[in-house]
Design a protein around this nucleic acid. Structure first.
Lengths: 193, 193
DNA sequence: CATATAAGTTTTAATCCTCTAACATTGATA
DNA sequence: TATCAATGTTAGAGGATTAAAACTTATATG
């Protein structure tokens, strides 16, 4: 008697992050391979084929892929939309990690993959805007990012970031190094999202 | 006959991210509550008490907590180190999300909690350094972050970021908006880390 | 066509984390 | 001390994801 005619069709809604990964991988493979096979997905996802088979049944039941035994795999409209979104998120994050934080590509790609499920759209947008801003704002730009790399390598030595006295700069720097773990409120865990 | 005298003691090593969460929560509660109880952990972790009990047995077997039926919970040296590290990671990430990206506290806290398990130490350090750099580099600083918020709210309008012609700025801006999803190599999934 | 090899599936099981329901202990209070 | 409420534990179960082993189907080639 609860929630009578709610779930419009299939077992739908509530995807796990693993399911999202599968959709992203299938979408990605579909873009570069014409046909997508169980074997390809297994390789992309770093799992064995039986794992893929059972997940495909799952996603098929949810109306996200079209799956029939021994045939190629295809995404439905809905599955494609989700896969595409996940790939886009992935790319935004990787771009941030590579271009702003200067993380090496492989690592950035791995970590983007993990971050992409946890971040809200708002946060994602903020990352994206931040990157754009850095390109746009004349006070920063690529030159400025170079200073950041310099700073990481050689510590407090921003002679090149002029416009302020060395004194001020290095005082702040010392402050940061000694920064204590100040531990404000830690919110409760949340299984949502 | 495999790996004879390897695992120094207990079932140790290979923590799941959930285990890390528990250690972080216990560490956090220990800092503000004198004694840590099952009930507190359950509340902090948003799970039921039996879940906590079984996890405590688990962590106890791994030598990360000192746990005896009906008694208060304490961390071992090793458990405390891990808990402290996780809390530190949590705080670095939340700080980044709040101070740089201007995400609201609650959301930032949630998302930091998820990110803290997946990012490598190197990436974490990069986040941390980046924040410090923004404080230190005279070309950026808090004024500059205000420009970012301005930019997010009103789009391409960095009159305040002088030193470059409006034309150049808005050309770049248009470029970014139209930015396609260019999809370079997507690396394989990796269950490591 | 015959059959070997590559690809895919089924079955069964393991691990991890969680829950509900029922039972046990502790501590305070009447 | 008897008892109640709060706290904690056990037992049993289930969902999610994974793999190993054995079996099935598809396909290419002699």
């Amino acid at each position: 008697m609860d929630a009578p005619l709610k779930s419009q069709r299939s077992t739908k809604k509530k995807l796990t992050s693993v399911m999202e990964d599968y959709l992203e991988s299938i979408f990605y493979l579909g873009m570069k391979k014409k046909v997508v096979r169980v074997k390809d997905i297994a390789k992309q996802m770093n799992v064995k084929m039986p794992t893929v088979t059972s997940m495909l049944k799952n996603l098929n039941a949810k109306g996200l892929v079209l799956y029939k035994k021994y045939e190629y795999v295809e995404l439905t409209k809905e599955g494609r939309d989700i896969g595409k979104m996940m790939l886009h998120r992935h790319e935004v994050l990787r771009k941030f990690l590579v271009e702003i934080l200067n993380i090496d590509y492989k690592t950035a790609d791995d970590e983007a993959c993990k971050m992409e499920h946890t971040l809200s759209s708002n946060t994602l947008d903020a990352f994206s805007d931040f990157m754009a801003f850095i390109q746009v704002c004349p006070r920063s730009g690529s030159e400025w990012l170079d200073f950041f790399q310099e700073y990481r390598l050689h510590g407090c030595r921003p002679e090149k970031c002029k416009e302020r006295s060395q004194d001020t700069i290095c005082k702040i720097q010392d402050q940061m190094s000694a920064m204590p773990t100040n531990t404000p409120e830690l919110k409760t865990h949340d299984s949502s999202s």
